Amino acid sequence: MQNNNDFGSILDDYGESLLRLAFTYVKSYQTAEDIVQDVFMRAYEKRADFRGEASYKTYLYRMTINRSHDYLRSWHYKNTLLTNRIAETIHRASSTEALIVTKSEEDQLGKKVLELPVKYREVLVLYYYADYTIDEIAEILDCRTTTIKTRLRRARQRMKEKLKAKEVFLNG
């Protein structure tokens, strides 16, 4: 990663996928943008420190995941989460029409994925959306491949249960 032109192409190549990855963690487009911007700034500042032990894409994904985890542990996130829950409760109480509005199937599936715990959500996104292999996901998440296989199996099972429950609710 020697010159600025190379870094510009990396921004173009990976910016959108890193944004989607961060969004799956933080569930806020604006926060995801901030995280990705921070990742690119740090990557640019530390470009000389990149050892090349993994691909640059893997390196950026790992940085994005770490930064997303940092955000989820922060006081700011916990405070925002509490504020949003209070606002959501007030909104639901005042707007029952909003509950009747239906969403597209893709929207519903995306919401169900976002409801999963982070450890399951991240393997689903990396495996199905980012097309990483189990070995690559293990490297990105710094886990054993057996752990990734287990998480992927459990994530699929949870999604199956969530979708089945939704189907029973709609049909029953």
Rank of each mutant, 00 (worst) to 15 (best):
G110L: 00
K119C: 14
L126D: 01
A130N: 12
Y120T: 04
E88H: 06
L81N: 01
E115S: 06
L72S: 00
A87K: 10
I137F: 03
Y77L: 05
I134A: 07
I90M: 06
A138K: 05
V125S: 00
I90R: 11
I90H: 12
R73W: 00
H76R: 11
S104N: 11
V113F: 04
Y128R: 05
V125P: 01
R62F: 06
R85W: 09
L60E: 14
I65D: 14
Y61W: 02
S74P: 13
E136Q: 14
Y128P: 01
L60V: 04
L81A: 11
V101Q: 14
T133V: 07
E106S: 11
A130W: 00
Y77K: 00
I137E: 07
K111P: 04
Y127I: 02
I90V: 12
Y59V: 02
S68P: 07
D70Y: 15
I134L: 14
L116G: 06
T89S: 15
W75M: 05
K119V: 06
Y71P: 03
E136F: 02
T133L: 10
P117H: 08
Y77D: 04
I86F: 09
S104A: 15
A93V: 07
A87H: 07
A87M: 10
E97N: 08
E97K: 12
Y71Q: 09
H69D: 10
Y128C: 01
Y71I: 07
L81S: 01
S94Y: 13
T102W: 11
R62Q: 14
M63E: 02
D107T: 13
L82R: 09
E139D: 14
T133G: 13
Y59M: 14
I134E: 14
E139S: 12
V123P: 04
W75T: 15
I137Q: 06
L81I: 01
S95P: 09
L109Y: 09
N84M: 12
R62E: 11
L109T: 03
T83A: 06
H69P: 00
L99Y: 09
E106P: 02
D107M: 06
A93G: 08
E122C: 14
S95W: 08
T80P: 00
I86M: 11
H91R: 07
H91F: 00
L114Y: 12
Y77P: 00
I134V: 15
E97R: 13
Y59L: 07
V101K: 15
R67N: 13
P117K: 13
H91E: 14
E88F: 03
Y77V: 02
L124D: 03
L126M: 15
K111T: 05
P117M: 07
T58D: 02
L114W: 11
N84I: 00
N66K: 13
D135M: 05
H91T: 10
T64E: 03
L126P: 05
L81R: 01
S104W: 06
T64G: 10
R85K: 15
A93P: 03
A93Q: 12
E136R: 08
E115G: 04
I134K: 13
T58A: 15
L114S: 04
M63R: 11
R121Y: 01
E136H: 10
E122T: 10
S68I: 03
T96K: 10
A138V: 09
D107G: 09
S104P: 04
T96F: 03
E105D: 12
